[in-house]
């Protein structure tokens, strides 16, 4: 059983990393989600596989002999919820980014780090860059 889970983790991480390295933004999000699923599986397997009975102590007994480890289940649940929220956020962000930048190619996204035109001088990160400064500070266009 543990070997099967190890194999699944291996395949999922491989696929996830492959997708994450893609230039297509949507595949990147999918890839991160897959690596997240693999991480959840690792966490689940960390609590030892074996008994599947819920860890509820029956009335009248002091201890539990044979039950699943409840702690990794709690951890996995937490990790799933956090991962879910982040993937949701990533999807919304990706959609807005594709819309604003009009491209879904990761290599074409150079708004934060513009490509230098000169091999020696770095590009200006200031969007309103002009060779000579005006007297007034640039005002951000509030949106």
């Amino acid at each position: 059983m543990i070997a099967t889970i190890a194999l699944v983790v291996f395949v999922t991480v491989t696929v996830g990393v492959y997708l994450t390295l893609s230039r297509d933004l949507f595949r990147v999000v999918l890839g991160v989600a897959m690596v997240g699923s693999a991480a959840n599986l690792v966490l689940f397997a960390a609590g030892r596989l074996g008994p599947t009975a819920p860890a509820v102590v029956p009335v009248g007994q002091a201890a539990l002999a044979d039950a699943a480890n409840p702690l990794p289940q709690a951890l996995v649940l937490t990790a799933i919820v956090i991962g879910f929220a982040l993937v949701c956020f990533a999807l919304v962000l990706m959609l807005r980014l594709i819309r604003d930048a009009r491209t879904d190619d990761a290599l074409a996204l150079r708004d934060a780090e513009p490509v230098p035109t000169d091999p020696v001088k770095p590009p200006a990160t200031d969007p309103a860059f002009e060779p000579i400064a005006g007297a007034e500070p640039r005002r951000e266009a509030a949106r």
């Binding site: 690596v35 997240g36 990533a90 980014l97 934060a112 949106r143």
Partner: peptide, 21 residues
């Protein structure tokens, strides 16, 4: 909401999320 900020947040998200995973 500026385009460079969205671009920055996507890169920040992807690399940091892989780190936390």
């Amino acid at each position: 909401g500026r385009r460079d900020q969205l671009d920055a947040s996507f890169k920040y998200l992807t690399l940091n999320l892989l780190g936390t995973l």
